[in-house]
Simulated assay, not measured.
Amino acid sequence: MRFQLILASVKSDITDKVVDGAKAAGATGATIITARGTGLREAKTFFGLSLEAQTDIIMFLVEEHVLQPILDAIGTIGEFHKPGTGIAFVLPVDQVIGLESQIERFKEEARKKYF
């Protein structure tokens, strides 16, 4: 089994929609980390306090065979084609521990897809 890590940075008001869409496309779960970011444009301020919207980093550890549909769902729901809406990227994962309870499910899904 080969795993990939999808990291998606989205505005917190759409985090639940992105997670639900990723699950519908094959993700088995997600980890959400609260963050803040900066982009090409300066954040608006009010008396020196930033008015930036909160950003969430959503992590999806997925098996390689379901990567593309999940990534497509994230991009579509997050409207990443519009400037300043978010970004997602994929990192390879060399080793994984702690997924023993899900390994049989992953194997069964892979068998269905390829056989």
Results as ranks from 00 to 15, higher is better:
Glu52Met: 10
Ala35Met: 02
Val10Thr: 01
Ile74Val: 10
Gly37Asn: 01
Asp94Lys: 00
Gly98Trp: 01
Ile58Val: 14
Gln102Pro: 07
Gly84Trp: 03
Lys107Trp: 02
Gly37Val: 00
Gln95Pro: 15
Asp56Ser: 09
Leu51Val: 04
Pro83Ser: 14
Ala35Ile: 00
Gln102Ala: 11
Ile97Asn: 14
Gln4Phe: 04
Phe46Ser: 06
Phe47Thr: 08
Ser50Lys: 06
Ser101Val: 15
Gln4Asn: 11
Val66Pro: 02
Thr55Val: 14
Phe47Cys: 09
Thr45Tyr: 00
Glu109Trp: 10
Ala73Arg: 06
Ser9Gly: 08
Ile77Trp: 00
Lys107Gln: 14
Asp56Trp: 03
Gly37Met: 00
Ile33Gly: 00
Thr76Asp: 05
Gly29Arg: 07
Arg111Gln: 15
Glu64Met: 07
Ile70Asp: 05
Ile14Gly: 01
Glu42Asp: 03
Leu5Phe: 09
Gly39Glu: 09
Leu91His: 08
Arg2Phe: 12
Lys107Tyr: 05
Val90Ser: 09
Ala35Phe: 04
Thr55Cys: 07
Thr76Ser: 08
Glu109Tyr: 13
Arg2Gly: 06
Pro83Lys: 13
Ala35Lys: 01
Phe46Tyr: 09
Thr34Ala: 11
Ile6Phe: 05
Val96His: 11
Thr55Tyr: 08
Leu91Asn: 12
Thr45Leu: 02
Thr76Gln: 14
Arg36Cys: 07
Gly86Val: 12
Gly78Pro: 03
Glu52Pro: 03
Phe3Ala: 09
Gly39Arg: 01
Tyr114Lys: 14
Asp16Cys: 12
Val96Arg: 10
Val10Ile: 07
Thr45Glu: 06
Gly86Thr: 09
Gly29Glu: 12
Asp72Pro: 03
Gly21Ile: 00
Phe46Val: 07
Thr55Lys: 13
Thr85Leu: 06
Thr28Ile: 14
Ala53His: 11
Asp20Ile: 09
Lys17Val: 04
Val18Glu: 11
Glu108Val: 03
Glu64Val: 10
Lys107Pro: 04
Glu63Asn: 08
Ile77Cys: 00
Ile87Cys: 05
Ile57Tyr: 03
Ile77His: 00
Lys113Arg: 14
Glu52Ser: 13
Phe115Val: 10
Leu7Phe: 13
Glu79Arg: 14
Ser12Asn: 05
Phe47Glu: 12
Lys23Ser: 14
Leu67Glu: 03
Val19Met: 03
Leu51Arg: 05
Ala25Arg: 00
Arg111Asp: 15
Asp16Tyr: 12
Ile77Lys: 00
Gly39Asn: 07
Ala88Ile: 11
Ile103Lys: 15
Gly37Glu: 02
Ala8Glu: 06
Ile87Asn: 06
Ser50His: 06
Phe46Trp: 10
Leu99Asn: 04
Glu79Leu: 05
Phe47Val: 12
Val96Gln: 09
Ala73Ser: 10
Glu100Ile: 13
Gln54Arg: 08
Gly86Asp: 08
Val62Cys: 06
Gly48Gln: 08
Leu71Lys: 03
Gly86Cys: 12
Ala30Cys: 02
His81Val: 11
Lys82Cys: 13
Ile14Pro: 04
Phe80Asn: 10
Lys113Asn: 14
